[in-house]
Simulated scan of single mutants.
Amino acid sequence: MAFHFAMGDPSELVQIHNVPHYRYLGSANEDIPWDVSHIIVDNSVTIIKKNAFSMCQNIESVIMGDSVRIIEAEAFFKCINLEVIRLSKSLQRIGERAFCGCEELQVFIIPPSVKEIERWILMDCPLLRFLVLPYEINLDHVGEEIIFNTPLCDFARDAGVQYEMDRNGIVTEESNRRFHEWLFCRTEPYESPLHKICYKADVTVQEINDYICENGDESASQMDAMHGITHGMTLLHMLAMNSHAAADVVAGNLLHANMDAVFLRDDEGETPLDYAARYNVPGLLKIIEILCLHRQTTFTKKIIHERGSLYQKKEVERIRKRKIAEVV
């Protein structure tokens, strides 16, 4: 999936390669075209208003400017084809039911800047299987049932953790906290510290390089284990899913440490290339560039080796002939 930024008047729908794009300005009563499939939130926008994209059933991707601080209630309610969302690095609050009913949403990475998550934000997302939450958030600022009726909620139930209702059908405060403690993995966020690094909005090449130097190249092939659930992902899978990660980070030392990692498939049959194509296109292009350079370098080394071997054979033959001539 390629993303193209709108040019000219940002309030107009732009057709690029037959794909409709729309730049959202956050204006009062802004009318979103019904057939838009890709949204670019303008850098001037600080608040995505309530119901801004509610029921826009053709939206597939949203690229959010880093000035956005608040996503109000039901902003993307029942965007049933929304698959890719890049949240703002400055985001502080996600409103009630903001992404409720997004049926194609599989991955949701919330940046560490978020301080408040209201209830039901990801309720009724039937494909949601991978969720990264800000591990330092105060659990008192997280609403109830944020992943109700999702596969993750089923995983929790299998682990013996679930929401409990009082006689009025309201989730009890105790069960809500217990569920969130499991979900946020407060005691041990990730099996590997590098997992936490990979999901950071400001992850750097130096952090990854330091970790690999300390733990060895084999650490690049470690499989993930989040919330007690193994997805069969390597660390490169996770970096490729991080839409905030710079291209050099995605295709940096982690790739060099294990070039084959780019072709490994997770439990869903997806490679890091597949995830980068959806969530981090600059990272994808950088990975391809490095793979091409690696192939060229390998081919060059092979030629040099073959030429060196041929030269060595000729030199041996020349010496042999000279010795024969001396004997004669």
Rank of each mutant, 00 (worst) to 15 (best):
A98P: 09
S219K: 02
L264D: 02
M55I: 02
I109N: 00
D166T: 04
P112R: 02
A6Q: 01
F148V: 00
L284M: 08
K313H: 03
H180Y: 12
R322Y: 10
F179M: 01
K200W: 08
R265W: 05
P134A: 12
L293Y: 06
A75W: 07
H305E: 06
L293H: 11
H294F: 06
R178V: 15
I110R: 00
K314R: 07
D9P: 04
T300Q: 08
L264K: 12
H38K: 14
A261Q: 05
R307Q: 04
W120R: 09
K314W: 01
Y24G: 14
S90T: 12
N29W: 03
E214T: 07
S27D: 04
R119Q: 14
L183E: 09
E83C: 06
I146A: 00
T300W: 03
L13E: 09
E218S: 10
I63H: 12
K50W: 02
F155H: 05
I63E: 15
V142C: 01
T46L: 03
H237I: 13
L284I: 09
L152H: 04
I121G: 12
M55W: 04
I63M: 15
L122E: 04
E181R: 07
S113H: 01
W34K: 15
S11H: 11
L13W: 01
N215K: 15
A220P: 06
L13K: 13
V132K: 01
I48H: 07
N18M: 15
Y275I: 07
Y24Q: 12
A98R: 08
V328F: 07
V107W: 00
Q206C: 03
H4W: 13
C185Y: 03
L152V: 10
A220Y: 08
E72T: 04
I304S: 02
I39Q: 05
L291F: 05
V161G: 04
V281L: 06
L291E: 15
I304T: 03
I170E: 13
R167G: 09
G269S: 06
V84F: 03
E174A: 14
V250K: 07
F99C: 02
G228L: 13
D248L: 11
P189R: 11
F155E: 08
D267M: 10
I80P: 00
D224G: 11
G269A: 06
G8M: 08
N81S: 12
L91M: 03
E104C: 07
G232S: 06
R157E: 11
D217P: 00
R129T: 03
D31L: 14
I70E: 10
E83D: 12
W120D: 14
L235T: 08
E60N: 10
D202F: 05
L239W: 15
S113F: 00
A225S: 11
E306K: 12
